[in-house]
Design a protein around this nucleic acid. Sequence first.
DNA 1: GCCTGTGAATCCATTCACAGCT
DNA 2: AGCTGTGAATGGATTCACAGGC
Lengths: 211, 211
Amino acid sequence: MPKKTKIPNATIERISLYARPLEILLREGTSLISSEGLADLCRVNPAQVRKDLSYFGEFGVRGVGYAVGDLLEEIRKILFADRVWRLAIVGLGNMGTALVRQENFARRGYRFVAAFDSDPGKVGGEAIPGLRVHPLKDLQTLVQEAGIEVGVIATPPSQAQNIADILVDAGIRAILNFSPILIRQPQGTVVENVDFTVSLENLAYRLSKVD
Amino acid sequence: MPKKTKIPNATIERISLYARPLEILLREGTSLISSEGLADLCRVNPAQVRKDLSYFGEFGVRGVGYAVGDLLEEIRKILFADRVWRLAIVGLGNMGTALVRQENFARRGYRFVAAFDSDPGKVGGEAIPGLRVHPLKDLQTLVQEAGIEVGVIATPPSQAQNIADILVDAGIRAILNFSPILIRQPQGTVVENVDFTVSLENLAYRLSKVD
DNA sequence: GCCTGTGAATCCATTCACAGCT
DNA sequence: AGCTGTGAATGGATTCACAGGC
């Protein structure tokens, strides 16, 4: 029974996590999984799996388990991953270029439909076949025309805040930021920051605590 | 006073976070910052900043604040970021290549000293000038010789677990995994998983809840 | 009998509020 | 007077334990 209770942010992250092994199980032809089986695959507690899912509905069958295909479909709906999302990349250095080439994005429905760079040497070329690189000044227009919903920032940190402002001005309300600064954004927009060095520092710290 | 209390994982992540604006303040010549000032820059509660830091020592001066340079140095020590870490990359596709070229890593002391790929067409070439690509079979030897401490996996998901096993066999105890599967690792080793599509799904979910 | 769904209990993290030092 | 450091209070998230349904 879907409650109006506050859903923990951690729950959303885990729901994403659950989808990965479910995809593999589906491909392998496994049709049923228990909360314990899924928990093992995701290194979490079985009760956690059940509680997380119960925030959104009753997807399992008591005494039986969860139907793999159905559960995956439900999770996709919960995460709005059952449709195509239109992304713009800003900054086509090493990271930006690698991102638009990630087939992992495309496979999950995250489609880069526009690319921008401030370097005149890059403008006019193609980031990947069919994805032309535009100057920043065309951003506003293209966001409208191409129906872009998510902006991905892969510029040097010094430009990142400026780019974020431009994206928000153009009407974009979701930003995935790969540059290692914290972006200041207005109410009603959402930002996810991805900083690899934070992960590395975490690894280093945890490494020193094991054993 | 450094306690033997269990330190929340979230605290470690925030400590990383605090370092970023401190670097900028230091460069700009600001020498003092209060917990409130730092909290504003990192979008957290001032008491959180003080409590996080207090797990590791007393770095501030009552009535005054924190000395920017000293605090940054302390944070670097806490995170073992005050030294060079030797990394190996495995998988030199788009993402792997982008990672070794990230100057952000190098600047923070995370240095790629070896590169591996299973594609014979890539072996023998250079991922970046001075970083030769080796076949996987040389991994064990090179890990020892080059003193590699962290393995970075940027292979297709189908190979990721196998690579992780090889890395662990070679004596590596810290893995940063960019492939979208959950890696199973033995006791005494640490893994950080970075999955961009999890961030995107999170964005999509949160976007639907704002306003 | 078996496994889900969930209130209650526990555990952990954040914030408050003030004592302690400069 | 001002700002840190921290025990106590609050607020969340996780886990337990069992009722509910196949």
